[in-house]
Design a binder for these strands. Sequence first.
DNA 1: CCGGATCCGGGAAGATACTG
DNA 2: CAGTATCTTCCCGGATCCGG
Lengths: 123, 123
Amino acid sequence: MADTASPVTEACPIVEVLDHVAGKWAIGILVAAAHGPVRFTALEREVEGISRRMLTLTLRKLERDGLLVRTVYPTVPPRVEYTLTDIARELHQTLVGLTSWAEKHRGTIAEARRSYDRHSATP
Amino acid sequence: MADTASPVTEACPIVEVLDHVAGKWAIGILVAAAHGPVRFTALEREVEGISRRMLTLTLRKLERDGLLVRTVYPTVPPRVEYTLTDIARELHQTLVGLTSWAEKHRGTIAEARRSYDRHSATP
DNA sequence: CCGGATCCGGGAAGATACTG
DNA sequence: CAGTATCTTCCCGGATCCGG
């Protein structure tokens, strides 16, 4: 934990895993699906701005990594539900910390960004 | 640089902020720089696999967002140190949770991935 | 020692149209 | 309702050379 040399540099399997979570839509989908089994169209509505294609692709990726379970009900019309696995729920807990951090400091960050851009403006 | 306003980031400033943290190298750099002021070459060594270019670009982005402070010592040869700001330190705390999650479950994830690939193999 | 500038390939992502 | 398929565009990221 409090090691002097952080093990980030060795082989970096962590970065590999995080790369998948770090996709543009993954976090949004995980947060949207955290409150229970969610249907495809519900996700399409909740994760605003996402396209059908990217929703499908990201869902497949998350399913492949064992973060989401896809359940198909052979009804008419078809119905598919996505549920977070246990490890995804654990992940969601840390994601909550991340999002609250972002909420808490988004003003400061926006300000810092403006200040930086103003300073590096080329008149 | 001049970030064009996309409809997604308008509605969701959190995603916009997280998008920057979610870059391929940002987390590694933040973790590597967390233990104190770090020089450019030290980061280049610690965040193994990163190129000079990406290191520079990511550092600039983090600096722009007010997560890193860049201090230039006008010596010969030049010496530059990067230090985490307070909000970056807060972020680093949640990042620790994220990385330990990844460490803890990377085996499970790798297994799930293999299982998924085996099942969806096309004979 | 710490970068910036440029060229270029590949994957991510949008738009659109079609299907079981 | 829940996806596929295809095409195109964009920008991330590596390689390389140059500069203070």
